[in-house]
Design a protein around this nucleic acid. Structure first.
Lengths: 191, 191
DNA sequence: ATCCATACCAACCGATCGGTCAGTGCGATT
DNA sequence: AATCGCACTGACCGATCGGTTGGTATGGAT
């Protein structure tokens, strides 16, 4: 069953809900189709379980993010580095969530996993809020959290494209690029 | 035929390539299935035509962006406002491109529309490069272009989510939020 | 030894998929 | 008047879809 969930995550991440048949999931997991339906009543149920798992992984990994330093710059850098590492560690779950974001706009906001997403976002905001005295007037921790997560996620999403756009202007490679926008953000938000 | 392309764009944007059947496209366009295959040899060909059109729309709309003011702040603000307006004007094409970004990573980078995307990105970089003397050391126009497009696109993508996350921290509403990060970016990039 | 829940499977169901084909109606060309 | 190209259609094809059914293998509790 764990095997089925694992293979389903990879396949759904790659091809989307409609692009994957239960039979494909079954074959990839080394079982037959009927067996998948024994563990999950419908295709939709399997999909939601996979999605739920992906959200939980974010929360569990965030638990392991401990930071000794308390300054804004250190907090923000550590956050971005952790998030980046998480995205690389769980590319399938990440792409699954990104897929869901692109899907019908209201679907995710009203789905069962939304409270999890909301809770995850709250935790990130709280982490930045502890150094909010270093923020310029009018810059809220929530804004900074949104920008950081957005840039990292969208950067992950367009990674392949960036590789072929590097010759335009002088767009840096990914790790250097990240260092650049962290530096830029810090200049922009500190008082 | 224009009708078919239009309805196909809306349906593909909403449900993705695998989530739409040719029959659905045909019914939405008021013709029969075989007629769709008369105009487009395969489902894939129809999809690529729709995608191509979406990229061209970006270029055509960018043509209409004229800016009298030459300062960096004015350029960047005008660029963001134009891009935002474009996204709202062509939500289906936008979601189609975003979908493609989330799909198999290399597919878009190697597809026929990539040169168009590349050219569009180059034009945005060029627009910012004309005020590059106002940029801080180590900040390239390409970096700024990437950040601006990323934040606007990802903001569009997560618009529905933001609405339900506003109660977290003090995340502002969309227009105000945009003003905030434009201001933040300007603080971060100007010397 | 019996019982029972669970994991698993081959075969099957009606519906729908992408795509084909033979043919119809029609305006422009000759 | 005959012909041609083109938009268009209903009927059809084999394959595959999500899901069901009836049944087997297994292992632990009684």
């Amino acid at each position: 069953m764990t095997r089925i969930l694992l293979e389903a995550e990879a396949l759904f991440a790659e091809h989307g809900f409609d692009g994957v048949s239960i039979n494909e999931v079954a074959c990839a997991s080394g079982v037959c189709k009927a067996n998948v339906f024994h563990h999950f009543a419908t295709k939709q149920e399997l999909y939601e379980r996979v999605l739920w798992q992906a959200c939980e992984n974010f929360s569990r990994s965030f638990d392991r993010l401990q930071l000794a330093e308390t300054g804004l710059a250190a907090r923000l850098t550590a956050l971005v580095e952790w998030h980046e590492a998480f995205l690389r560690e769980r590319p399938n779950g990440t792409r699954l969530i990104l897929r869901e974001l692109t899907g019908s706009p209201t679907a995710l906001a009203q789905s069962a996993v939304f409270p999890l997403i909301r809770s995850n976002f709250e935790r990130v905001v709280a982490l930045l809020a502890e150094a909010s005295d270093e923020l310029r007037e009018g810059i809220s921790p929530a804004l900074v959290a949104k920008l950081v997560l957005s840039l990292n996620l969208f950067g992950f999403q367009t990674e392949q494209l960036d590789g072929r756009l590097m010759t335009v202007g002088s767009l840096a490679a990914r790790p250097e690029l990240r260092r650049q926008w962290i530096d830029l953000l810090l200049h922009g938000i500190q008082r």
